[in-house]
Every structure is written in structure tokens, then in C-alpha cells.
Simulated assay, not measured.
Amino acid sequence: MGGNEGTMNPWLFMTINMVVVFAVLAMLGLIMVITHKLDPTKKKSKEPVNVAPAAAPVTAAAPVVANDEPVVAAITGAIVAMGYSSDQIASIRPSETSRNWRLDGRLSGRI
């Protein structure tokens, strides 16, 4: 064939391409970190954020209404999936700000 045989080596070609791709990815990651730190649109918190300690296990559970057992089971399962034990759940009650809970309560005659 003749010519420069070194430029036709597929391993060299692959190595150069991989170096270029990972260098570009590293540069983009660095740009993202710098942008995240210098973000002018981020709201500044004036109050220091305090991390609350983990909830202590509760011995008595709140009474469960028979109609809400599937809902309570789903909520408990989701909380346990987040890493808490079922003993740490103090109570599950509807939020006063949740429109769906209020509507459910009105429709069932509880509110």
C-alpha cells in the first residue's frame, strides 16, 4: 500500500478518539461545577439551615381507619423505602394544605 502506516492503526485511532471524548467530558463537568457555584439566580438563604436529628422510635401508633388501610400501607411502604424503619413513623394524617385530602374527607363525610 505504501504511505504512512501508523495513521491507519485502528488502536491508535480509537485511543485518540477516547482521549478527546473524555477530555471534553471532563471540561464540561468542570464548567458545570463552576456554573453551579457562581449561579447568580440561586436564592441566598439568610437563615442558617439546621439539620433535624432523626426521629426517635414511637411506641404507640395512631389509630388507622379501615377505609384508609391501603393508603396508609402505601405511605408506610414509601417511607420505609426511603430508609426509615416502620417503628419511626409517628403518625400519618392528612395535611390541611392538601386539596386532595380535603376533597376526600368532604366526600366521605369526615370534614
Results as ranks from 00 to 15, higher is better:
residue 110 R to G: 02
residue 108 S to F: 06
residue 45 S to L: 09
residue 72 V to H: 00
residue 7 T to C: 07
residue 58 V to M: 05
residue 6 G to E: 13
residue 65 V to L: 12
residue 87 D to K: 05
residue 89 I to C: 01
residue 49 V to N: 03
residue 63 P to W: 05
residue 67 N to Q: 14
residue 10 P to E: 07
residue 39 D to F: 02
residue 28 L to N: 12
residue 89 I to Y: 01
residue 86 S to P: 00
residue 108 S to C: 03
residue 17 N to R: 08
residue 108 S to M: 08
residue 81 A to I: 01
residue 75 I to R: 00
residue 111 I to S: 06
residue 19 V to G: 07
residue 37 K to G: 03
residue 30 L to Q: 09
residue 15 T to A: 14
residue 1 M to Y: 11
residue 18 M to D: 08
residue 36 H to P: 02
residue 42 K to L: 14
residue 98 S to N: 15
residue 9 N to S: 08
residue 52 A to D: 10
residue 47 E to V: 07
residue 94 P to E: 04
residue 42 K to G: 06
residue 33 V to Q: 11
residue 12 L to T: 14
residue 78 A to N: 02
residue 48 P to R: 06
residue 46 K to Y: 05
residue 107 L to F: 10
residue 38 L to V: 07
residue 54 A to M: 12
residue 62 A to Q: 13
residue 58 V to D: 04
residue 33 V to M: 13
residue 77 G to R: 02
residue 82 M to C: 11
residue 99 R to M: 08
residue 53 P to H: 01
residue 102 R to S: 06
residue 47 E to C: 01
residue 40 P to T: 09
residue 37 K to N: 10
residue 88 Q to E: 05
residue 71 V to W: 02
residue 109 G to P: 00
residue 59 T to D: 09
residue 2 G to W: 04
residue 29 G to W: 09
residue 70 P to K: 02
residue 56 A to T: 15
residue 111 I to C: 00
residue 44 K to T: 09
residue 22 F to G: 06
residue 68 D to N: 14
residue 24 V to E: 00
residue 26 A to M: 13
residue 34 I to A: 13
residue 26 A to V: 14
residue 74 A to Q: 11
residue 37 K to I: 08
residue 94 P to R: 03
residue 5 E to R: 13
residue 65 V to M: 06
residue 91 S to G: 07
residue 14 M to T: 07
residue 48 P to G: 02
residue 67 N to T: 14
residue 22 F to T: 15
residue 77 G to E: 01
residue 102 R to I: 01
residue 100 N to C: 05
residue 64 V to L: 13
residue 66 A to V: 07
residue 55 A to M: 10
residue 4 N to C: 04
residue 26 A to Y: 08
residue 101 W to E: 07
residue 39 D to T: 01
residue 54 A to G: 14
residue 16 I to F: 08
residue 57 P to I: 10
residue 35 T to R: 13
residue 83 G to I: 01
residue 76 T to H: 00
residue 65 V to H: 10
residue 45 S to N: 11
residue 99 R to E: 14
residue 61 A to C: 03
residue 23 A to Q: 08
residue 62 A to K: 10
residue 16 I to L: 11
residue 76 T to V: 02
residue 6 G to F: 13
residue 77 G to Q: 05
residue 59 T to V: 10
residue 16 I to V: 15
residue 5 E to K: 15
residue 28 L to C: 12
residue 86 S to E: 12
residue 12 L to W: 06
residue 41 T to H: 09
residue 82 M to P: 03
residue 83 G to N: 01
residue 100 N to R: 09
residue 29 G to A: 13
residue 47 E to M: 07
residue 51 V to T: 15
residue 10 P to M: 04
residue 20 V to G: 04
residue 18 M to T: 15
residue 85 S to E: 09
residue 111 I to P: 00
residue 98 S to P: 01
residue 44 K to A: 12
residue 95 S to Y: 04
residue 55 A to Q: 11
residue 96 E to K: 06
residue 67 N to D: 15
residue 49 V to P: 03
residue 50 N to C: 06
residue 60 A to N: 09
residue 53 P to R: 04
residue 45 S to A: 14
residue 2 G to A: 14
residue 79 I to G: 02
residue 7 T to S: 07
residue 97 T to W: 00
residue 10 P to F: 04
residue 18 M to V: 15
residue 55 A to N: 05
residue 2 G to H: 06
